[in-house]
Simulated scan of single mutants.
Amino acid sequence: MLTPVVDEDGAPFWEYAARGELRVQACAEEDCGELRFPPRPCCPRCQSFAAEWRLMSGRGRIWSYVLPHPPLLPGYAEQAPYNAVLVELAEAPRIRLAGNVVAAPDAPLNSVDPARLRIGAPVRVAFTEIDGLAVPRWLLERG
């Protein structure tokens, strides 16, 4: 498995994830408040360096997905076919997080039948530990 690389700008994201919280960086300027992901030092809207981390609901929808055949990395061959998704966050539709839809937080990447995936399908975040990091994954919501 690939382990995410934690840098200075993104470190708070991983610290909150370890607590089971999905947070997104936001501009802390009173007149701005722009949400941004991936994390970076400067607001793309007003160029302020003031930032805070806002708690998200953890809900979203599948914006796009792909089923890699064959897997591009040998370490994923045993789990094929698996999905890779972009999830649009409910409270921040311009922010999309990459991940996988799984049947349970610790389930393998191929635990969801690809036929169940649809653009627009509602999902919610769940975290699993991989190499000491709490990594967000996505669970399909009923309905």
Rank of each mutant, 00 (worst) to 15 (best):
residue 69 H to W: 03
residue 86 L to E: 10
residue 3 T to M: 10
residue 1 M to Y: 09
residue 56 M to T: 13
residue 31 D to I: 00
residue 80 A to E: 13
residue 8 E to T: 14
residue 143 G to Y: 01
residue 112 V to D: 09
residue 127 F to M: 11
residue 109 L to M: 15
residue 36 R to P: 02
residue 136 P to A: 11
residue 100 N to C: 07
residue 73 L to K: 14
residue 60 G to V: 03
residue 62 I to S: 08
residue 141 E to I: 00
residue 116 R to N: 06
residue 22 L to E: 13
residue 87 V to N: 07
residue 14 W to A: 11
residue 130 I to N: 06
residue 61 R to T: 15
residue 23 R to C: 13
residue 3 T to V: 15
residue 105 P to I: 08
residue 50 A to Y: 00
residue 92 A to Y: 02
residue 18 A to E: 13
residue 25 Q to A: 04
residue 66 V to A: 15
residue 37 F to M: 08
residue 57 S to R: 11
residue 21 E to L: 14
residue 45 R to N: 03
residue 35 L to H: 10
residue 137 R to L: 13
residue 34 E to Y: 01
residue 54 R to E: 05
residue 11 A to W: 04
residue 7 D to S: 13
residue 8 E to M: 07
residue 23 R to L: 07
residue 14 W to G: 13
residue 71 P to Q: 01
residue 44 P to Q: 01
residue 76 Y to L: 15
residue 121 A to N: 03
residue 121 A to T: 01
residue 29 E to W: 00
residue 35 L to E: 04
residue 130 I to P: 01
residue 44 P to H: 01
residue 93 P to L: 07
residue 122 P to L: 10
residue 127 F to W: 12
residue 70 P to M: 01
residue 131 D to H: 15
residue 142 R to I: 03
residue 133 L to E: 12
residue 45 R to S: 04
residue 66 V to E: 07
residue 65 Y to D: 04
residue 95 I to H: 02
residue 84 A to I: 15
residue 53 W to L: 09
residue 93 P to A: 06
residue 10 G to S: 15
residue 34 E to W: 00
residue 85 V to K: 08
residue 27 C to W: 00
residue 117 L to C: 05
residue 48 S to R: 00
residue 97 L to N: 05
residue 122 P to W: 10
